[in-house]
């Protein structure tokens, strides 16, 4: 099935853009844009999101390939962890030399 058949509005697919600001950091979601394919999505991301020297690496993911949790499942998904303070590793003394963790 061609792209035209699955996309009656005849728009390019939406891509989610992730940029790594500097070496050692992780990629962060910065926004989304339209592009006909992955290669053009990278080029468009370069022009839309890195023109002020924001990045050293770009990831693009087709938005429809992302599976997201449902906001209506918020209760069962997240609330049970709220009352379990012992899961946080805050009871250890961390030497100052270690710096930010």
């Amino acid at each position: 099935m061609s792209y035209q058949d699955t996309n009656p509005r005849n728009e390019w697919p939406l891509w989610e853009i992730f940029i790594r600001g500097q070496h050692g950091m992780s990629h962060r979601h910065v926004g989304s844009l339209h592009a006909p394919d992955a290669e053009m999505a990278i080029k468009n991301a370069r022009d839309v999101y890195t023109r002020r020297n924001e990045g050293v690496s770009i990831w693009v993911v087709e938005a429809e390939k992302i599976t997201a949790s449902s906001p209506s499942d918020k209760g069962p998904m997240y609330e049970p962890s709220q009352s379990k303070v012992y899961r946080h590793p805050t009871f250890f003394d961390i030497p100052d030399d270690v710096g930010a963790m």
């Binding site: 468009n44 022009d47 023109r51």
Partner: peptide
Amino acid sequence: PIIEEDIALAN
């Protein structure tokens, strides 16, 4: 034709 091209051309 699309905003992504608009920005790229301006760049």
